[in-house]
């Protein structure tokens, strides 16, 4: 047996997104390895939709995703915490007005 890690270069990692039903957006469900995009789609069908979980699949190379850094969390997201006037519940609606 040759060691598993001796393979020349590992298959790239793909992130899998599935639309559960028409009318809702694709949602991240997991990832898998495949040599190319077409095989990734086939594998995603077998791994993630064995019980009718999807009507459409996207696969995206994991390496193509740029993500925010958790260390930047405060400077990116804390600012929104102080702008509570962006929520309609900030404003008082007189009872006489009823629904607005």
């Amino acid at each position: 047996m040759s060691g598993a890690s001796s393979s020349a270069s590992p298959w790239p990692l793909w992130e899998v997104f599935i639309r559960g039903q028409a009318g809702i957006s694709h949602r991240h469900v997991g990832s898998l390895h495949a040599a190319d995009a077409e095989t990734a789609l086939c594998n995603a069908r077998d791994v993630y939709t064995r019980r009718g979980e999807g009507v459409s699949i996207w696969v995206v190379p994991s390496a193509a995703i740029l993500a925010t850094d958790p260390d930047d969390h405060d400077q990116l997201f804390d600012a929104a915490q102080s702008k509570i006037y962006r929520h309609p519940s900030f404003f008082e609606v007189p009872e006489e007005i009823g629904h607005m």
Binding site: A8, W11, A35, D36
Partner: peptide, 16 residues
């Protein structure tokens, strides 16, 4: 399974 499947894994890689 790993060693006998090597030709298949390599084939897929070569194809891509």
């Amino acid at each position: 399974a790993w060693s006998e499947g090597a030709w298949y894994r390599e084939g897929l890689k070569a194809h891509s």
